[in-house]
Structure formats: structure tokens, C-alpha cells
Computed example of a mutant assay.
Amino acid sequence: MQTGSVIAEEIAQFNALAARWWDDTGPMRPLHMMNGPRAAWVAARIAPRFPPGTRVLDVGCGAGLLSEALAKAGYDVLGLDAGGEVIEAARLHAAGQNLPLAYHHGTAEALAASGAKFPVITALEVLEHVADPRAFLSLLVSLLAPGGLLFLSTLNRTPASFMVAKLGAEYVLRLLPRGTHDWRKFITPVELGRHCRAAGLRLADTAGLSFSARLRHFQVSRDMSVNYLVMAEAVEGSRALPAPAR
């Protein structure tokens, strides 16, 4: 079942992992491994534009790995997710840490309808799980304040990503539950660039996020063949295409 950008089956799949989301040896281990490098990449690009305390919206936050990392870097973070169980896990983990961090169970569509605007929006590892990536980007732009920055990460649709992120991670190494990803929904950088332009965005920076088998961790690199990161900004005077009616 689908409601706007949300696919109910995807939400149910991630809700089922909520209890072990913060277990860095559990089913979310790959996210734990990549969270440090990706959060550092994002924070390093926010800092020249916006001071500590700037509001950040983390869309599709799950149980809050990125949200907590950005809050610890000094930003005022709102984590948003359509999964009630992952949001509860996020709140429980953040409790008592006295972080500038709040969580909201809901959709980006409902938040946009409220008129909310944010200087910085992140949506990492989300695009490959939404119903319509192009419409979802237009939705994110509607939440972006003038002069704001949008950060994305996703999986490239290449033979390498099929071997590494699908077969390797889900079936060989069993780092992720089977069925976590649909390789056909992975998005190439060319496709993402096209979607961004249609939404009124300009790609300002890109990078790969690669796993080093020797060092046993992820690192930012030039290799975008599997995971990659994007920073985009609204083009002044542009007008995003409207999202389809629900």
C-alpha cells in the first residue's frame, strides 16, 4: 500500500528492525559503519554556511543514527519518520542525553502542509525506498528554506552495487535482512541529477562512500559505483515541479 511518498511495506520492514537498530553488531551494522563518515561529510558542508544551533530536518531518520550525530555536532535536529516503532526507538535512545534533538512520527507531506521550513534537510538512504524519487525531491524542496541545503545519499544502480549491496550484504555476508533493497530502485547519479534539476535544485557537491575491506570501515572517496552522497541547493528563482496529487 502507498500513501504519497510512503510505501507501507517498506515502513513495516524497518519497524520490524526497530528493537535492534542501535545494536552495532545487528541488522543495522552497515548503517553504523557508514554513519560516522557520512555525518562528518554533511557537517563539514553545513558549517561554512550555517552556525551551530541551525535547524536540521532529518527525513526518514529511522531510529536516529544521523540525527544524534548531527545533534552532537551542535545542530538543532528534528528527526522525521513514518515508522512509529523506529521513532519510539529513537526517542528511547536519545532520552537523558540532553541533546538539541526531537523526533516526530509522520510524513514529509504532512510536515510540508504545515508550512514548516528548514535551512538544512537530510534524507540519507531514503530515495531508494520511496514511491517516486522525483516527486519526493520536489516535496523536500517545499520544506527547504530559501538558501537552504539538501543532503542525500543513495545507492547507484550498477553491477558493482548489485554484487556488493544486494547479493553481498543480504545473501553472502548477511549484513542486512534479505529484501532490504530492491536493486531496480537504485538511482544513478545521472538520474538523480535530472531529478534534482526538475525539482529546482543544483548539485553542489558529490562523493562516494566506499567500504574498505582492509580497514573494515567505510570512508568518503571518489568511487560512486555503490553508495554516494550529494549536496544540493535551491536554484534562485526556480520553481519545483508539483508533486502528484494523492
Rank of each mutant, 00 (worst) to 15 (best):
residue 60 G to Y: 02
residue 190 V to L: 12
residue 211 F to S: 06
residue 158 T to H: 10
residue 59 V to D: 05
residue 183 W to N: 07
residue 209 L to S: 10
residue 239 R to G: 08
residue 113 A to L: 13
residue 155 L to M: 15
residue 88 E to L: 14
residue 10 E to L: 04
residue 158 T to G: 06
residue 214 R to A: 13
residue 235 V to D: 07
residue 234 A to P: 03
residue 69 A to S: 14
residue 239 R to N: 09
residue 147 G to R: 10
residue 194 R to Q: 14
residue 79 G to N: 01
residue 240 A to Y: 01
residue 224 M to P: 00
residue 233 E to R: 13
residue 91 R to H: 04
residue 184 R to N: 15
residue 174 R to D: 00
residue 126 V to L: 11
residue 204 A to N: 12
residue 101 L to G: 09
residue 95 A to Y: 11
residue 89 A to K: 15
residue 11 I to P: 10
residue 130 V to P: 10
residue 112 A to Q: 11
residue 221 S to C: 09
residue 186 F to I: 10
residue 68 E to P: 03
residue 97 Q to Y: 08
residue 124 L to Q: 09
residue 162 F to Y: 15
residue 13 Q to K: 14
residue 33 M to Q: 11
residue 167 L to K: 02
residue 210 S to C: 09
residue 240 A to G: 13
residue 127 L to M: 08
residue 208 G to R: 08
residue 117 K to C: 12
residue 135 A to W: 03
residue 49 R to D: 12
residue 238 S to I: 05
residue 29 R to L: 05
residue 13 Q to T: 01
residue 145 A to V: 00
residue 54 T to F: 13
residue 121 I to V: 11
residue 110 A to R: 08
residue 55 R to Q: 15
residue 7 I to Y: 02
residue 241 L to M: 06
residue 171 Y to W: 15
residue 88 E to G: 14
residue 99 L to R: 10
residue 104 H to M: 14
residue 175 L to F: 07
residue 129 H to V: 00
residue 187 I to F: 07
residue 144 L to D: 09
residue 62 G to C: 11
residue 7 I to H: 09
residue 129 H to L: 07
residue 200 G to F: 08
residue 85 E to D: 10
residue 131 A to W: 02
residue 80 L to P: 01
residue 243 A to N: 09
residue 14 F to I: 02
residue 202 R to A: 15
residue 233 E to I: 04
residue 184 R to Q: 15
residue 2 Q to N: 13
residue 153 S to I: 01
residue 24 D to N: 08
residue 119 P to V: 00
residue 114 S to A: 13
residue 31 L to Y: 12
residue 136 F to Y: 14
residue 43 A to S: 15
residue 15 N to M: 09
residue 138 S to V: 01
residue 213 A to Q: 06
residue 11 I to F: 08
residue 168 G to I: 03
residue 42 V to A: 13
residue 127 L to H: 00
residue 237 G to D: 08
residue 132 D to H: 05
residue 95 A to L: 13
residue 73 A to G: 06
residue 178 R to W: 03
residue 197 R to A: 09
residue 208 G to C: 07
residue 164 V to C: 10
residue 98 N to W: 01
residue 236 E to M: 03
residue 98 N to A: 12
residue 109 E to C: 06
residue 27 P to R: 09
residue 58 D to K: 11
residue 206 T to A: 12
residue 75 Y to V: 04
residue 6 V to T: 14
residue 98 N to E: 12
residue 26 G to C: 14
residue 8 A to L: 14
residue 144 L to S: 05
residue 221 S to A: 15
residue 57 L to S: 01
residue 12 A to E: 14
residue 151 F to E: 05
residue 214 R to P: 01
residue 185 K to R: 14
